[in-house]
């Protein structure tokens, strides 16, 4: 059975929600919360860095966790072809660690924001989006204070050409992200980072009327990919 490590730093708070997301879609992967100091790169087929406030978001969101020894191990795992997903604070950590390009700045309106948004996935590639189709609408909630994606034009053009981009639909950009970017993958799709919370958009009952459970495809995709390849 594929094994997925859900990394917990001090202050991480969505770790159990991610494990539960696999349970709720009836997945048979073994997803486990792993304390960051106890992470052993050899044991895992995929890695998820969940949301929260690692180290209380001191300095900048994700800045301290990105400089831990654990992130070094995760960087080595990526080099070996292990898929990594960063959600919210996890995305911030991946960007701080240089595993994904761009930066995540404080929201334009200066406040924390928690609400449901609609996003669209463009050019899905890699193990986290195997089952998604280009242009598919994926609805998920956001909850963050520092989620405004920023990137220079040149790097953005590269992203658009080579990576998957998860984009807020018109009228749903909650934080002023440039080009409405909600999430991006690495060029090979192995590393995926996004601000919205897919684990909170699994199963009809958690989804408000008029939205779809847009997080499910991420968890189904990784299970599919780990079993059958991507």
């Amino acid at each position: 059975m594929p094994r997925i490590a859900v990394i917990k730093f001090p202050g991480t708070n969505c770790d159990e929600d991610v494990v539960n997301a696999f349970k709720r879609i009836g997945s048979s992967v073994e997803a486990k919360v792993v304390w960051y100091k106890e992470f052993n790169e050899k044991d895992w087929d995929a890695i998820i860095i969940p949301g929260g406030f690692s180290y209380g978001d001191w300095l900048r969101a994700g800045a301290i966790a990105a400089r831990t020894h654990t992130m070094e191990k995760i960087r080595r795992s990526v080099e070996k072809g292990i898929p990594v997903l960063g959600i919210c604070n996890g995305f911030q950590i991946l960007v701080e660690a240089g595993l994904l390009p761009g930066a995540l700045l404080p929201n334009e309106h200066g406040k924390f924001v928690c609400r449901w948004t609609r996003t669209v996935i463009e050019n899905p590639k890699g193990p986290w989006l195997t089952l998604a189709s280009s242009g598919e609408e994926l609805d998920m909630p956001v909850a963050h204070g520092e989620g405004r994606f920023y990137i220079d034009y040149e790097s953005y053009s590269l992203l658009e050409k080579e990576s998957s981009i998860l984009r807020y639909m018109k009228g749903y950009n909650p934080n002023g992200s440039i080009y409405d970017v909600a999430g991006i993958t690495s060029r090979d799709g192995l590393v995926f980072g996004l601000m919205p919370h897919p684990e909170r958009a699994v199963g009809r009952e958690l989804v408000p009327r008029g939205f779809n459970p847009g997080g499910e495809v991420v968890f189904r995709s990784i299970e599919f990919s780990l079993k059958k390849g991507w």
Binding site: G51, C114, A143, E199, R200, V202, E205, L206
Partner: peptide, 16 residues
């Protein structure tokens, strides 16, 4: 007010 609160963490909030 309530959009400044994370009212979804825990993935158990059915009526928000």
């Amino acid at each position: 007010i309530y959009e400044q609160y994370d009212h979804e963490v825990g993935a158990r909030t059915v009526i928000k």
